[in-house]
């Protein structure tokens, strides 16, 4: 933690960045984003296992971006998100410095995003055992059982879009649900419309989702919407051989590779 604070102070004091995005103690045993703009504030920085909000969601936020060059404390999912954002031209070395945090809570000073990429590529995107089990269960369901499962899970959704807001990859200035000519997805929340919204979102994250679970963590109604994106990660793996966020901007679905496995055609 001291390392982290020291590094943040150094970045601020040397004017290397204008703001360091990290975590602080929040209310009710929660942690939350902290924006360090002067070095005294850096003492509030913390890092522990509760820090699961994906801070990369802030690097595309206009108000944060307009402060100038940013540094971000980044766990593995956050780093993945940063690389994916870089590949989509949303951040670059000129506006972002990554302070990596290892699973052992050690900090890593990255010189540039390429180094972050190299680090990130050491780890595959893997679905954890608990969710793996639920996905298996869903796979084994009949279509009508699965339909019922999702209707039950998604009908409470009141479309507050916290999932979208918390997701680092949902940075579009006009989301498809805000598009009304034509109105692809109904504005009001109803059973079918909710399904359309969440399925569409999962589709838009296919090949891009960094599996940080920010969406599910953000949902005030505790709907396990991350199951949808996790399923997409699985499908991407079995049908296309999987993906890693990459600075080369090779997107899983928009680039053709002769060695793509095309299981879905079978």
């Amino acid at each position: 933690m001291d390392d982290l604070r020291k590094r943040a102070k150094e970045l601020i004091d040397t004017s290397a960045v204008k703001v360091v995005i990290g975590y602080e103690q929040g209310t009710g045993n929660k942690t939350r984003a902290l924006f360090v703009e002067n070095s005294e504030v850096a003492d509030k920085l913390i890092f522990d296992s509760r820090c699961v909000q994906n801070l990369a969601a802030y690097v595309t936020k206009q108000e944060v971006k307009s402060k100038g060059k940013m540094a971000i404390t980044a766990t593995l999912p956050v780093m993945r998100a940063i690389i994916q954002l870089a590949s989509e031209f949303q951040v670059n070395d000129d506006n972002l410095i990554v302070i990596g945090i290892t699973p052992e809570s050690k900090i890593i000073d990255f010189k540039n995003l390429e180094e972050v990429e190299t680090y990130v590529h050491q780890f595959q995107i893997e679905i954890d055992a608990r969710n793996r089990e639920i996905l298996d269960k869903l796979d084994k369901m009949t279509p009508s059982e699965r339909w019922k499962f999702w209707i039950d899970e998604l009908s409470p959704c009141f479309k507050c879009y916290a999932c979208r807001a918390a997701c680092p990859m949902c940075y579009c200035s006009r989301c498809t649900v805000d598009f009304n000519r034509p109105q692809w997805i109904p504005v009001s929340s109803n059973e079918l419309g909710n399904l359309e919204w969440h399925f569409m979102r999962a589709m838009h994250l296919t090949g891009r989702c960094v599996d940080c679970d920010a969406c599910a963590n953000a949902c005030p109604l505790a709907i396990p919407i991350n199951l949808l994106t996790k399923k997409m990660i699985e499908d991407a793996k079995s049908d296309f051989g999987g993906y890693q966020p990459s600075l080369k901007g090779e997107n899983l679905l928009s680039t053709f590779k002769p060695d793509d496995k095309e299981n879905f055609i079978q």
Binding site: F35, V64, F158, C160, R164, P220
Partner: peptide
């Protein structure tokens, strides 16, 4: 501005 910097702009609070 200071208070809302971390606000993500969802509608959870209102709903």
């Amino acid at each position: 501005v200071e208070q809302s910097l971390k606000c993500l702009g969802c509608g959870a609070c209102a709903f």
